[in-house]
Simulated assay, not measured.
Amino acid sequence: MKKIQKIFQYAYIVFAVLFIYDAITKWSEDRNGAFISLALSALAVFMFFFRKRFSRKFDDHNKS
């Protein structure tokens, strides 16, 4: 179970990179679509750090 959570945690970073790539390719032709992709990449990075912090907090709670 813990290994699956780690995989999904790092999947957020993969999605962030994909959304940034998508924003770069859309930038010259569709700025609104590029801004949406940038917002989604920022959300994915936020979710990565949120899940990492929550997982660490959960592990510390189980150890004590």
Results as ranks from 00 to 15, higher is better:
Asn62Gly: 00
Phe48His: 12
Phe8Asn: 12
Ala23Gly: 06
Ile24Phe: 13
Ala39Thr: 02
Ala44Cys: 13
Met1Pro: 00
Phe35Ile: 13
Phe15Gln: 08
Ser55Pro: 00
Phe49Leu: 09
Ser55Asn: 09
Met1Asp: 07
Asp59Gly: 00
Ser41Pro: 01
Ile7Lys: 06
Lys6Glu: 14
Ile4Cys: 04
Ala16Trp: 00
Asn62Tyr: 06
Ser28Leu: 04
Met47Cys: 10
Ala42Pro: 00
Arg56Gln: 14
Arg56Ile: 08
Asp22Gly: 05
Phe49Tyr: 14
Leu18Ser: 05
Arg53Phe: 09
Asp59Val: 04
Asn32Lys: 12
Ile4Ser: 11
Asp30Cys: 03
Gln5Trp: 00
Lys2Phe: 13
Ile20Thr: 14
Phe19Val: 03
Met47Asp: 09
Asn62Met: 11
Ala16Tyr: 01
Ile36Trp: 07
Val45Thr: 08
Tyr12Met: 09
Phe48Gln: 05
Asn62Asp: 09
Phe58Trp: 09
Leu43Cys: 07
Ile4Asn: 09
Tyr10Asp: 13
Phe35Gly: 04
Gln9Arg: 08
Val45Cys: 04
Glu29Asp: 14
Phe50Ala: 07
Ala16Asp: 02
Met47Glu: 10
Phe46His: 08
Lys2Met: 11
Glu29Arg: 14
Ile36Gly: 10
Phe58Cys: 05
Ala11Trp: 02
Lys52Met: 07
Ser64Val: 07
Tyr12Ser: 13
Val14Phe: 03
Ala42Met: 09
Ala42Leu: 13
Phe58Asp: 15
Gln9Ser: 05
Trp27Gly: 01
Phe15Lys: 10
Phe19His: 13
Lys6Trp: 04
Asp30Ala: 06
Ala23Ser: 08
Ala42Lys: 05
Ile7Tyr: 04
Lys52Leu: 11
Met47His: 04
Asn32Tyr: 06
Gly33Asn: 04
Phe48Thr: 05
Val17Pro: 00
Val45Tyr: 02
Tyr12Thr: 10
Thr25Pro: 00
Thr25Gln: 07
Phe15Gly: 07
Phe19Ser: 10
Ile7His: 02
Lys57Gln: 12
Arg53Asn: 07
